[in-house]
Design a protein around this nucleic acid. Sequence first.
DNA 1: CAGTGAGCGAGCTTCCGCTTGACTT
Length: 775
Amino acid sequence: MSGNLVIVESPAKAKTIGKFLGKDFTVTSSMGHIRDLEKKNFGIDIRNHFAPNYVISPDKKKIVADLKKQAKDAGTVWIASDEDREGEAIAWHLKEVLKLDPEKTKRIVFHEITKDAIFNAVKNPRPIDINLVNAQQARRVLDRIVGFEVSPVLWKKVKPSLSAGRVQSVAVRLIVEREREIISFQSQSAFRVSAVFLVPDAGGNVVELKAELNKRFETREEAFRFLEKCRSAGFTIADIVTRPTRRSPAAPFTTSTLQQEASRKLGFSVSQTMSVAQRLYEGGKITYMRTDSVNLSSLALNTAKSKILSLHGERYVKTRQYKTKSKGAQEAHEAIRPTYIDQEEVSGTAQEKRLYDLIWKRTIASQMADAELERTTITVKISNSPELFQAVGEVIRFDGFLKVYIESTDNEEENGDSKALLPSVTVNQELRAESIQATERFTQKPPRYTEASLVKKLEEQGIGRPSTYAPIITTIQNRGYVIKEDRPGVERTYVQLTLKNEKVTEKVKTENAGAEKSKLFPTDIGMVVNDFLVKYFKKIMDYNFTARVEVNLDEIADGKRIWNEVIEEFYGSFHKSIESAMEVSERTNGERHLGEDPATGKPVLVKIGRFGPLAQIGESTEDGEKPQFASLRSGQIIETITLEDALELFKLPRELGEYENKKVTVAIGRFGPYIRHNNQFVSLQKGVDDPYSVDLSRAVELIEAKREKDSKALIRTFDEEPELRVLNGRWGPYLSYKKKNFKLPKGTKAEELTLDDCLKIVQESTPAKKGKRKT
DNA sequence: CAGTGAGCGAGCTTCCGCTTGACTT
């Protein structure tokens, strides 16, 4: 009865704290929230001042039972959940659910896991802050109301099973609006002029000085006239300016910046980053990975300092404490840093090592001196023209933090040339132009979001929390609002004029523009749902909605307002908008008329159908006439598809003829063009075959080739069970039975399997999952 | 793996934030 029980949120944290506190304390964890609003029946009694109906989360039943038992046996229960809104609520739910005696219950908080911080916390317990708890209840209730009242409107007016929410709907809006900016973007071209001058250096060799003209020409003619002028011009150095600059290191990682840098530098998806970080955290190698704080403990500052001292010397040390800029940060934890900063690397998988290395370098760099640079601008004047050429060079005088870490940017263009060392020249020196080039360049469309740049944007707007950035991104993809994919660019031509050896020549070159890799694209359903929500729920869809809610939540937390009154005030007008959306709006399917089919004169339209976006020729009529349908291909969207593209879709499937008395057809499916014969599918060869022109003999060739390949994959069949086959697949031998696949137990010799063995395997094992995995 | 494109209509879908598992292909 006299022991101490400490409850924290995460088991890994429990483990470390247990070590600090010693054997008088038992440290255990609640695994986050233990209760939530009931999922059925709305979970809120709206008429009774929005009274929440909490139930123990199904996956927490066992934990709660264990906690109850432990709490009963303990002399004192120390609730040490995080010091933020959610953490305070967890503390309160624990107190309620475990029916803790106030006399023997103490609430403690610390935001760094060091011995000092924890002992300090134990010495300074405080009561549970009910205002903060109420702010959380308001947040929770509001999110439930928004999600569970708006989603059903979508089921009725757009499509079943769709979802809307305070966070996800705004995330989709960002992507949809960016796409529209791109669609309406008009690319402009201008001629950029660059010159290569030849300069003798100290040793008598000739070196190049590359410079850019400070003016662009709108047309080819202007650029041409300029180059013609240059033919007879003289070039002299007009000015040399040298200016010192400094660069400072970036702050230590938060969840959001870690996700961004891991994406740019390591190519990780945001969820990949989080699961690798989770393993590092569980292994005690880094501090907590879901944080919005850039704060480092004084212990961390000290170890970083001595580490830098021993590695690079005193000049490289500069202790810094950073301040959070992001909206709505709650800073319950430290920044993400190595637990033991003197440890430069860790054991583990390649991914763990790389992510750790990134975290280590960023942490160390944040405590290092500024880099000192010198930027030199050389200006070259032209004897017969007012324009100027400029060359910019940068020299690092002192590398400082750049020795260990350079932050990346999303701007792909920036990592270019021009920052090189410049040759030494003097004012009034005459230069000889080796060549001058005018190149047509196009303005860039706004960039599409990557997972990580979307997280950055959300964080800037104060939307979502560190624990939800990764789930948000998967949710909007799972709902089909957004798709992450690569898209090929398009070839475009540009003009290049070159002045060399006193002659101006012209070349037309081609480049690939607008190729995208792992970018977020809105789908048709995403765009239709977004437009619907923006139309009927303007307030919720406003980018500042969350920020405004936060102001109210802060007032509740400060005890200035009552939480259910705040909700009441919101609910009045919100619920009216639900009712009017239900009544007023038509069912919406994004229908768009493209024009007439020239062959039949019937209307051609595109819309969202039961199985996704489709094109349609003609309408259903009374006399039983049915329209023709065709699915849109990936990359085509209702908003931008043209009549020509839509008509093209109806050219497939094509019948090629018969082979072995069965029809041979060609079509394009989810995985590209294919031939279908006797219910067998054979892919066309990429880059070789064209579905619109491929003929029967080529199709037969491909069918035969596929048969040949399949027969090699076949290990055994049984006459008694024609549907059972032992096959050799990509991951070794496996069983196929009634269109389901089964893994062989380890050590099985596939060649020696009997029919009974196989049936036993089928019965005892669950089939390997097919198709897309859902998380 | 790849097709489909309606009016019998049961019962279901859905939110955001805390946490970690048990699964593979």
